[in-house]
Nucleic acid binder design. Structure first.
Length: 468
RNA sequence: GGCCCCUUCAUCUAGCGGUUAGGAUUCCAGGUUUUCAUCCUGGCCACAGGAGUUCGAGUCUCCUAGGGGUCACCA
């Protein structure tokens, strides 16, 4: 049985790095038919963990990650932690330290001045005298004095930290509340974690947590420390690096499967494969194949993946995504299929898709001057007028793009002109610009009537200009 | 600064002692197309540096440099 977890602190929202470790943990649990648990590290009590959890679950829901059992809030388990603190105190594995904050700071200053590593000096470790008056003690755990703490990381291999690097760290503050490294170890053990997949930045917490495991007689899980994701400058990805809230990606028009695919390939790979469905991720993912080095995220690849997924998503789903996320309801349009077929290959995001659709279904208000000028040289005006008449004669008979295409073909053949001669003027008339989907597709979407109308509008505009 | 981790094209990466160092994205060129996009073809671009070990090193060892992480009564 594999049990993994995602244990964020309540900082407000889920960012891209968090989602990646969550994805890794989720994949590993689901792949092995195990459990994926959620816990919120809110021993600090300063932030609103309910709202933070809500934001995280919203993001999970969007990308399709689910979890088992109930969310564990550490703030609701203080009684439990207190029992363990008491036990360690009784067993002499932890002790009260009466050193005040100021005193501690002074000690650190001294050590730094001497070029030493700042650490607690253990002065109350074996204290049995009379405690100073009026000082609320903190509780410290006895860390080993010598030797080294060794553990095998599933990604980095064997990690050895000298015991002198780990001091008797505080497990309970003077107000009695427990601290992070203490409760993490307890909860991971109690929740039955077998595999802890977390960020690289926790590597140094591991020896501390191992001290707790040892003191309490718990069996540690297997650890996997996933390298960080850096920003494009190669620096640590911070929350200020722009739109890093996972939900921002939704607003920018990314598909959840594209985002997940992008993230899973950051630090993990399987040969040359770039595209992974969730099923494939579940089939192939293994945390021990995760890279040792940090990666930096680069939007180009995500954009490309998103384009790929949009291109390969059914029109039905695209229509419903546009409705849900971008307030565009095209379900009433009688040529939805043609409309999406014509626009999806030209869109890298749903935002672009929406814009491209708008460009077609809304009659052009004005014409791109450059395109206009370029398209209407020579006899273009006359050709277009002629084509409009031809089109009109087919009203009610044309439906498919191929049928419109045949009309165009016939037309250029009779007039002995190239496709470009009619294509460009027509495009400006229908779309107002010189780029866009094929004219047969556009006409099939608009229908004969609307197409002719748009042509007429341009033609009369042309007359106006001539009159001036 | 101490300790720990990391280092293959601009970016994501393959490589697990013998390869013309592969793929993808970006960029460039060509093809397809009535235009644009998609798509297809091709091109540019990398083993951080230096010592070893070895018949042979991107792959193993050490050193240097660079990057990152961490050193709280935060998590």
């Amino acid at each position: 049985m594999v049990v993994t977890r995602f244990a964020p602190s309540p900082t407000g929202y889920l960012h891209i790095g968090g989602l990646r470790t969550a994805l890794f943990s989720w994949l590993w649990a689901r792949k092995n038919g195990g459990n994926f648990l959620l816990r919120i590290e809110d021993t600090d009590m300063k932030r609103n963990s309910e709202d933070a959890m809500k934001a995280i679950l919203e993001a999970f829901d969007w990308v399709g990650l689910d979890y088992d059992a109930e969310v564990v809030y550490q703030s609701k388990r203080f009684g439990l932690y207190a029992e363990y603190i008491e036990r360690l105190l009784e067993e002499g594995k932890a002790y009260r330290c009466y050193m005040g904050k100021d005193e501690l700071d002074a000690l650190r200053q001294e050590q730094m001045a001497r070029g030493e590593r700042p650490r607690y000096d253990g002065r109350y470790r074996d204290f049995d005298g009379t405690p100073p008056e009026g000082v609320q003690p903190v509780i410290r755990i006895k860390a080993p004095l010598e030797g080294e703490i060794v553990f095998s990381d599933g990604i980095k291999g064997e990690i050895r930290i000298a015991a002198t690097e780990v001091d008797d760290f505080i497990i309970a503050r003077s107000d009695g509340t427990p601290t992070y490294n203490f409760v993490v170890a307890i909860d991971d053990a109690l929740m039955g974690l077998t595999d802890v997949i977390r960020g690289d930045d926790h590597l140094y917490n591991t020896p501390k947590q191992l001290v707790v495991y040892e003191a309490l007689g718990f069996t540690p899980p297997r650890f996997y420390h996933v390298p960080m994701i850096n920003n494009e400058e190669g620096r640590k990805l911070s929350k200020r690096d722009g739109a890093l809230d996972v939900m921002e990606y939704r607003k920018m028009g990314y598909l959840p499967e594209a985002l997940l695919n992008f993230l899973v390939r950051l630090g993990w790979s399987r040969g040359d494969q770039e595209i992974f469905s969730i099923e494939e991720m579940l089939e192939y993912f293994d945390p021990s194949n995760i890279n040792k080095s940090a990666s930096s995220y680069n939007l180009d690849k995500l954009v490309w993946l998103n384009g790929h997924y949009i291109n390969n998503t059914t029109n039905e789903r695209l229509a419903s995504l546009l409705k849900e996320d971008f307030d565009m309801d095209i379900s009433g349009h009688d040529r939805v299929e043609f409309l999406l077929d014509a626009t999806k290959t030209r869109s890298k995001t749903l935002v672009e898709l929406r814009d491209n659709i708008e460009l077609i279904i809304e009659s052009p208000e004005e014409y791109d001057p450059k395109a206009f000028k370029k398209a209407f040289k020579g006899e273009a005006h006359e050709i277009l007028a002629d084509f409009a008449r031809r089109l009109q004669s087919y009203e009610g008979e044309l439906h498919l793009p191929t049928e419109y295409h045949r009309v165009m073909e016939e037309f250029v053949k009779e007039r002995e002109i190239g496709f470009g001669k009619i294509g460009q003027p027509l495009r400006v008339a229908l779309l107002g610009r010189m780029t866009g989907p094929g004219m047969d597709e556009v006409m099939a979407i608009l229908g004969v009537r609307e197409s002719v109308e748009r042509i007429s509008r341009l033609l009369s505009r042309l007359e106006e200009l001539k009159a001036q």
